[in-house]
């Protein structure tokens, strides 16, 4: 494993840990909040970098609160899982993109449709980021 790969693996693990904190929080967190909750030897700037990366990917929302920035997950864990499923399962029929790629098992459009209805979002758009709805 090269050094670069190692750094990327560590970064991925860190992103998961930071995201877990945002998901479990009731309200948006500052970098300091996240840093303290992580309970490990990390530089403040490292946490800031990770949050910045997640925000750039559109997975985390950044909002200004007085002097500090606060961060919140753009979607709940359940909503993100549902979006992944819809994206993957909906990979049949007429799409505006090429396939993610082929499946060993493809679930039919009916399932994808049911999932969409359960989420009550229009086809093709990612689920919005409404208040938490644990049942979805």
């Amino acid at each position: 494993m090269s050094l670069g790969t190692l750094a990327r693996v560590a970064l991925g693990e860190l992103e998961r840990a930071v995201m877990a904190q945002l998901w479990s929080a009731d309200a948006p967190l500052t970098v300091r909040d996240v840093h303290d909750r992580l309970e490990r030897e990390l530089a403040y700037t490292t946490v800031m970098t990770v949050l910045g990366r997640l925000a750039k990917k559109g997975l985390v929302r950044q909002e200004r609160d007085g002097k500090a920035y606060r961060y919140a997950a753009a979607a709940s864990r359940e909503q993100m899982a549902a979006e992944v499923m819809i994206d993957a399962l909906g990979d049949v029929g007429e799409d505006r993109t090429a396939a993610l790629v082929a499946f060993v098992d493809r679930v039919g459009p009916a399932e994808a449709e049911a999932l969409r209805r359960a989420l009550d979002t229009p086809a093709g758009t990612p689920p919005p980021t409404p208040p938490r709805s644990p049942e979805s």
Binding site: G12, E15, M19, K57, L59, V84, D87, R96, T97, A98
Partner: peptide
């Protein structure tokens, strides 16, 4: 157009899958 859209969609999918994976 297809290439661009597909790559954007895949990048987002990879990001989400990476976060959701059971480590």
């Amino acid at each position: 157009l297809l290439a661009v859209r597909t790559r954007v969609r895949r990048a987002r999918h990879r990001d989400m899958v990476d976060l959701l994976a059971r480590a």
